[in-house]
Nucleic acid binder design. Structure first.
Length: 157
DNA sequence: GCCAACGTTGGC
DNA sequence: GCCAACGTTGGC
């Protein structure tokens, strides 16, 4: 069994916040809407059930880590790609060769908001993929050391 | 609303 | 397969 891995997953809280996840049925939601191949490949090729997830609020007044979650399924078909009414509809994706997949993500707990500026101020997080200039990936890997440090930071008030 | 960064598209 | 144009992301 492979070692547990860690990820940071961005979500716009207006669409799906850590509270949305906490209040959903069985506190578990399909991570629909990923339309970037690199992010998809992380879900398809690397994620394992039980991997740790930092739930990150993006494109909002206070961007930052807002809670913890975990990967709850293997990657499977993202049905929104075939739904013309969905904002995630992809006319180029074909039924016989679907482009987009997603995993399910399960709520673990809410945390204090660990803001971007605070993360940038941490020498131990300087190498984080999230913090790289111009990074736009909605799913990024987190190293065990980064995960450990972030958990410690989340315990501080 | 601005703008930098970067992924994707499509002509050649 | 190159690369310019374009669209999107996301912090500020």
């Amino acid at each position: 069994m492979p070692a547990r891995q860690y990820w940071l997953m961005k979500s716009e809280p207006e669409e799906c916040s850590i509270d949305t996840l906490a209040q959903s049925v069985s506190q578990c939601l399909p991570w629909t809407g990923v339309r970037n191949y690199q992010a998809r490949n992380f879900m398809r090729d690397a994620m394992q059930v039980g991997d740790g997830v930092l739930f990150y609020h993006s494109s909002c007044p206070q961007p930052g880590v807002a809670g913890l979650a975990e990967v709850a399924s293997a990657a499977y078909l993202d049905a929104t790609q075939f739904d013309p009414a969905s904002p995630y509809f992809d006319a180029r994706s074909q039924r016989e060769a679907p482009r987009w997949l997603h995993v399910d993500v399960r709520f673990v707990r809410k945390t204090r908001l660990l803001g971007l500026a605070e993360m940038r101020a941490q020498p131990g997080l300087a190498g984080m993929t999230l913090l790289r200039p111009g990074n736009r990936l909605s799913i990024t890997p987190v190293t065990p050391a980064e995960w450990q440090l972030i958990l410690e930071l989340l315990e501080r008030t």
